[in-house]
């Protein structure tokens, strides 16, 4: 089923929407999440949370690129889960408590998300200044978390070229952020 048809299912509030989404993009979303959390169960939960988030947002949202839209949600959830896993080791009951407490905060992620959105805008502007090849390699490495070898195989180029491109792009990003007054 094509993405447009899947989006229509969301708009019709049909539960087939999630089943078709999983069929079309489930594996790629799971792979993306697994690269971030490095845990199969966490990756599965991240993908499930992604479907739930998409179900809540569509409608009124109508994504132009369904996979990119889902992948953004999935990546964000996976990063949040990674933060949670890396937090100070807490006891299970404490975890449960803190989770419950969070429900009392109007939007506990607002500040963090605003910050993330601002960073995202900066990065989008920076990526637009790059040549296409550099942009694709940078995105595959730092957005999709692909390995150097995977990127080299994907684009039919040597690993050394991928490394060189990434090194140059990182230097450009540092200069760009300094110019924008952001210390890294």
């Amino acid at each position: 089923m094509e993405d447009k048809q899947i989006i229509e299912l969301y708009w019709q509030r049909s539960e087939d929407a999630i089943r078709e989404t999983d069929r079309a993009h489930g594996q790629k979303l799971h792979a993306l999440s697994f690269r971030i959390v490095h845990n199969n169960q966490d990756a599965e939960e991240s993908v499930s949370d992604t479907y739930m988030e998409a179900w809540n947002q569509i409608p009124p949202v109508r994504p132009n690129f369904l996979f990119a839209y889902l992948a953004k949600i999935c990546r964000n959830i996976s990063c949040s889960r990674l933060d949670w896993l890396n937090a100070a080791k807490r006891k299970a009951d404490l975890v449960e408590l803190t989770s419950e407490m969070e429900l009392c905060i109007p939007d506990s992620r607002l500040e963090q998300q605003m910050e993330g959105q601002e960073i995202g805008r900066l990065l989008s502007r920076f990526l637009d200044t790059l040549p296409k090849e550099s942009r694709l390699i940078f995105m595959r490495r730092y957005w999709y978390a692909d390995s150097i070898r995977e990127i080299a195989a994907r684009y039919g180029m040597g690993e050394s070229k991928v490394k060189t491109q990434l090194h140059r792009t990182r230097n450009k990003l540092r200069q760009y952020l300094e110019k924008e007054g952001i210390a890294v």
Binding site: F67, Y69, C79, L123, L127, Y142
Partner: peptide, 17 residues
């Protein structure tokens, strides 16, 4: 920065895919 990458525009995400 790594987390902020999640918020780059969808067209860039789609392009890389």
């Amino acid at each position: 920065l790594f987390s902020g990458m999640s918020f780059v525009e969808e067209r860039l995400v789609n392009e890389a895919e």
